[in-house]
């Protein structure tokens, strides 16, 4: 069974992102939403963790990235989705764990 993980906290404010990575198994997807999108930018200290998490797909909620002025700072290898894409991710995985 595959799991969709959502993270809505900045990796600099909370352990949620790190904890989530510990739970993201091969074949799962991590979707960064709300303040979670700060993990998705280039050159930040969370970027390497994303690069090293092989077997896990990373996505970011585009509207949240745009709202925070970081569209041009998106790191490679992270898929941008809109709310419809968020819905699709939920439908494509067997269950959802929100790392609140």
């Amino acid at each position: 069974m595959t799991l969709l993980h959502t993270v809505n906290k900045s990796p600099f404010e909370s352990m949620s992102f790190d904890t989530c990575l510990g739970y993201a198994k091969d074949g799962s997807t991590v979707l960064l939403i709300e303040d979670g999108v700060y993990a998705a930018t280039t050159g930040n200290s969370a970027a390497d963790k994303i690069k090293n998490a092989s077997g896990v797909t990373f996505a970011v909620l585009g509207p949240d990235l745009q709202a925070r002025g970081l569209e041009n700072k998106l790191a490679d290898g992270i898929k941008v989705v809109d709310y419809e894409g968020f819905v699709n991710l939920v439908a494509e995985h067997d269950s959802v764990q929100s790392w609140l």
Partner: peptide, 15 residues
């Protein structure tokens, strides 16, 4: 990692 396996088997995760 053991708990990650258990979590992956769930139908519903309430957080």
């Amino acid at each position: 990692s053991e708990l990650a396996d258990v979590m992956a088997e769930q139908d519903i995760c309430l957080s």
